[in-house]
Design a protein around this nucleic acid. Structure first.
Length: 355
DNA sequence: AATCCGGGGAT
DNA sequence: ATCCCAGGATT
């Protein structure tokens, strides 16, 4: 079981961890049939996103796009719709590119080494290690937030874990412990340990931890102090005004730019600052719609990772102006049913999508 | 090395 | 309110 060139302590740690994993591991959809494609999809969805949130998205995604070929051939609009509400939308746009790379450059076969995987769009050091270890049994640790936290506590690491240096020493640590016969299980066991035992924020459940007798933070009573957190930058606050322009049973929406926040998603017309009724009506005319009636909607707030939108909003009953030169206008009137089924509209507008 | 990029659940 | 989550791309 233990390879000869690993020291005894490393072998003991991996055995403890894998035994715990064999009885306590989480049952998750992407673990049922961990093909490279399945693992890939799950790892992209799970970036900065909780397991409970991902499960339903994962199942629907695989139902509609069962293999890398289907993904490569899909329209981006459809992908964004499947991703709607999940956040970090560039993830799926990058994965789409990656799938096309697999079809064009790898003959449709997802590569199995970290080096080749990392050439694919949207796959970085972590995901490359995760896919290669879980789907190909390639012996490499996949160091995510869980592994960094577990590392800091296990070794009593007193520096910030959000640095390149921390990732480097943590990777070396797990390289040493790694059971090279079960690399995928090692990584998933560490993620489960971090997610269910070695919890962030508040008290970890050390009494249930397979490594409790070997943990430096536990020994020194620093479970709550570690890992060391870096100060978070404050979010900037932005005032915006959202317009819900209705023409009969249609509503005006537009496609956002292909770069930046919420790239390529659809939105209600909106502007910087808090507009007056007169300014809102003028903005409406600029879009090619003549306002007939206007009323204030309830203000709302949406928090992104790095910015807050403090939104005012108006509903405007309007008529499309035949003279309006809609040629260069990205905004158009969409059917209500298409809003549900076709266009991907981010959660930021949710407060104004109920009508 | 910093900054940008979403959304939601737990505390 | 604050934290932070199975991070990667861009600058």
């Amino acid at each position: 079981m233990n390879t000869s060139n690993r020291n005894q302590q490393a072998a003991k740690l991996s055995d403890l961890l894998l035994s715990w994993y064999d009885s306590e591991r989480r049952i998750l959809p992407w673990r049922e049939d961990p093909t490279p494609y399945h693992v890939w999809v799950s790892e992209i969805m799970l970036q900065q996103t909780r397991v409970d949130t991902v499960i339903e998205y994962y199942q629907r995604f695989l139902r509609e796009l069962p293999d890398v070929k289907a993904l490569a051939e899909a329209e981006e609009e459809r992908l964004l719709k499947l991703w709607q509400g999940l956040g970090y939308y560039s993830r799926i746009r990058n994965m789409h590119k990656g799938a096309i790379q697999v079809m064009e450059e790898y003959g449709g076969e997802i590569p199995g080494t970290p080096k080749e995987l990392q050439k694919l769009s949207g796959i970085g050091e972590y995901v490359a290690a995760a896919i290669s270890s879980i789907a190909f049994a390639y012996p490499i640790p996949s160091v995510d937030g869980n592994l960094l936290r577990v590392y800091a506590r296990m070794t009593g690491y007193e520096e910030s874990i959000r640095t390149t240096a921390a990732r480097k020493v943590a990777t070396a640590y797990y390289e040493e412990i790694l059971d090279r016969t079960r690399p995928g299980d090692m990584n998933q066991a560490l993620m489960d340990l971090g997610a269910t035992i070695c919890l962030p924020n508040g008290a970890p459940l050390c009494g249930k931890c397979p490594w409790q007798m070997h943990c430096e933070a536990r020994r020194t009573g620093k479970e709550q102090q570690l890992p060391v957190k870096e100060e978070k930058k404050q979010r900037r606050k932005e005032k915006r005004t959202v317009l819900r322009i209705r023409t009969g049973d249609r509503v005006v929406i537009g496609k956002r730019p292909e770069r930046g926040l919420l790239a390529n998603l659809y939105e209600l017309p909106n502007a910087e600052g808090w507009l007056t009724e007169a300014q809102a009506e003028e903005a409406c005319r600029t879009l090619g719609y003549e306002p007939k009636a206007i009323r204030k909607l309830k203000p709302s707030k949406h928090i992104f990772s790095h910015v807050e939108w403090h939104m005012h909003a108006f509903e405007i009953e309007a008529e499309e102006r035949p003279d309006a030169s809609a040629a260069e206008n990205v905004f158009f009137a969409a059917e209500k049913s298409a809003l549900q089924e076709e266009y991907s509209i981010p959660t930021a507008f949710k407060a104004y999508m109920d009508f």
